[in-house]
């Protein structure tokens, strides 16, 4: 048996040594590019990654197979990006939630380990109340929170996230609300739609169907300016709340150290992707259309976001 095994191993090594030597560096891309989706199937990152991969195939001329590598707030997938060679053949989705998890001390990532080749989606987060909520506006909601600290329950994605940071900021302003974390988005939505929680912190695209059906009513957008799709909803700045720059962005990133010409090529590809009609229809449906950003600006945006969440988390609550 040993002899037979040995023969196989020897044959294998001989064959691969020959093949390996003959490998040539052709023009990028010469083989399929892996798109690592850092969250499970069906979610916002998944639809973004798969749609982008599908549209990028036409631009790149090779297949861009998307695969879900989920776990640890997106860090499992990024670990895979980081352990693959920096040759532009492994792309990963990098989103705000994952960056905020680094700031909370989770995962192995740091902003300077990635080059962001495309900021594909971005949206501020908002507070929504259920259809039959007694609090019809942001003013009423905040006034109630002031009068009854911690009585209002807000459904969020967890402790130590942007959601948590925002609620902590509100607590400091005297508008204390209780953070009720739901790990699964569907359970989070159901809880507020079913009025088991008083409000939900979420980006509008993820709850679009509830907003359109009227089951969830937007009352406040955490940004300096109003959201163009929700002109009647006040921005936090109008109410004297200085909490912005925590937008939910979704980007495509490669490992730092990827040759600059490949980074530039990918940046151009994703700029073209976002310019297509298909993409426009997709982002309009999810309220996440954003402007094209250079690689430097995108990297800087991730860095700023990271620092901001880190600072806010470091402050005593």
């Amino acid at each position: 048996m040993k002899a037979a095994l040995g023969t196989f191993v020897a044959a294998g090594i001989a064959a691969t040594a020959f093949a390996g030597g003959a490998l040539a560096q052709d023009a990028y891309p010469e083989r399929p590019i892996d798109m690592v989706i850092t969250f499970g199937p069906g979610g916002g990152s998944d639809t973004m990654g798969r749609t982008a991969a599908h549209l990028a195939e036409k631009e790149l001329g090779v297949a861009v197979p998307a695969s879900n590598v989920s776990g640890a707030s997106g860090n499992a997938g990024l670990t895979r990006v980081l352990t693959s060679p920096a040759d532009g053949y492994t792309l990963g989705t990098l989103i705000a939630l994952t960056v905020s998890s680094w700031a909370a001390g989770l995962g192995v990532g740091q902003p300077d380990q990635f080059d962001v080749v495309g900021v594909l989606q971005s949206s501020p987060s908002m507070l929504f109340v259920p259809k039959d909520s007694p609090h019809k506006s942001a003013e009423e909601l905040l006034a109630f929170a002031k009068a009854n600290p911690k009585a209002l329950k807000v459904a969020t994605s967890g402790f130590g996230t942007m959601d948590d940071v925002t609620l902590r900021y509100l607590t400091k302003q005297g508008d204390a609300m209780t953070n009720v974390p739901f790990a699964k988005p569907a359970e989070r939505y159901a809880s507020t739609v079913g009025a088991h929680t008083d409000a939900i912190y979420e980006e509008p695209g993820d709850v679009a169907q509830f907003v359109q059906s009227g089951d969830l009513v937007p009352v406040l957008v955490f940004a300096d300016e109003r959201h163009k799709d929700f002109p009647d909803v006040p921005a936090s700045k109008e109410l004297g709340l200085d909490i912005s720059g925590l937008d939910n962005f979704r980007t495509i990133a490669v490992k730092k150290g990827t040759p600059p010409e490949i980074v530039e090529r990918l940046h151009k590809v994703f700029a073209d992707v976002t310019a297509t009609q298909e993409w426009h229809d997709f982002c309009a449906k999810t309220y996440t259309c954003t402007e094209n950003m250079s690689v430097e600006d995108a990297n800087a945006m991730v860095e700023t976001f990271y620092k901001k969440v880190k600072d806010l988390l470091a402050q005593p609550s």
């Binding site: 691969t16 093949a19 390996g20």
Partner: peptide, 8 residues
Amino acid sequence: AMGEATVR
């Protein structure tokens, strides 16, 4: 090298 061989 095995990775390159597999691609090949």
